[in-house]
């Protein structure tokens, strides 16, 4: 049963990811990535990671993709602009993909899951709940890294605002 569910999820994720790339319509592409994210969340659920599954939906499906849709709406692309191929050597890409597949196949065949280290065994995770453990580690041990990441993101946001303001003022 578990294998069946995993098989379905893996297949659905792969197919929807391909559909994201191949969709002619930008809105459809965003929606296929919504399907992709939902399946990913269920995959987290089968691994008992409820918190991650919920965050996946809230952040990616609920916020990021809605913003994507917003942008796609604003530029209002009903159909993709068709363009003549600008690379004549595109068959070489298939060769690269073939090599990539061979490489990842070789890497995966030698894959062994690492044994749990320290106190974070599967049993301890289940007993305490992911949310608590994640919070404790994030805000105690790794609080410096967490804050640094927060400041970096803030800088990026401020940078974007400054850039947009400058363009507007020049336009005036």
């Amino acid at each position: 049963m578990e294998k069946l569910v995993f098989g379905y999820l893996a297949l659905a994720i792969l197919v929807s990811a391909l559909l994201v790339v191949f969709s002619r319509n930008a809105v459809k592409a965003v929606l296929w990535s919504l399907v992709l994210f939902l399946h990913q969340a269920v995959l987290f659920l089968t691994l008992q990671a409820e918190f991650l599954a919920a965050i996946q939906i809230i952040v990616y499906a609920g916020a990021v993709l809605v913003l994507f849709l917003f942008v796609v709406y604003l530029i209002n692309l009903r159909e993709e602009i068709t363009w003549p191929r600008f690379l004549s050597a595109y068959p070489l890409a298939f060769l690269a993909i073939l090599f990539l597949l061979a490489l990842s196949g070789a890497a995966l065949s030698g894959f062994r899951p690492a044994p749990p280290k320290g106190i974070l065994t599967a049993g301890a995770l289940l007993a305490q709940g992911h949310t608590r453990i994640l919070g404790e580690h994030l805000f105690r041990e790794y609080v410096l890294a967490f804050e640094a990441a927060g400041v970096l993101l803030l800088v990026a946001v401020l940078g974007a605002v400054v850039l947009v303001r400058r363009i507007r003022e020049e336009g005036r």
Partner: peptide, 16 residues
């Protein structure tokens, strides 16, 4: 266990 997050997730999906 994450009931509150489930509600937030579903309400964010309903905007679609």
């Amino acid at each position: 266990n994450v009931g509150l997050l489930v509600i937030l997730a579903l309400s964010s999906l309903s905007s679609y």
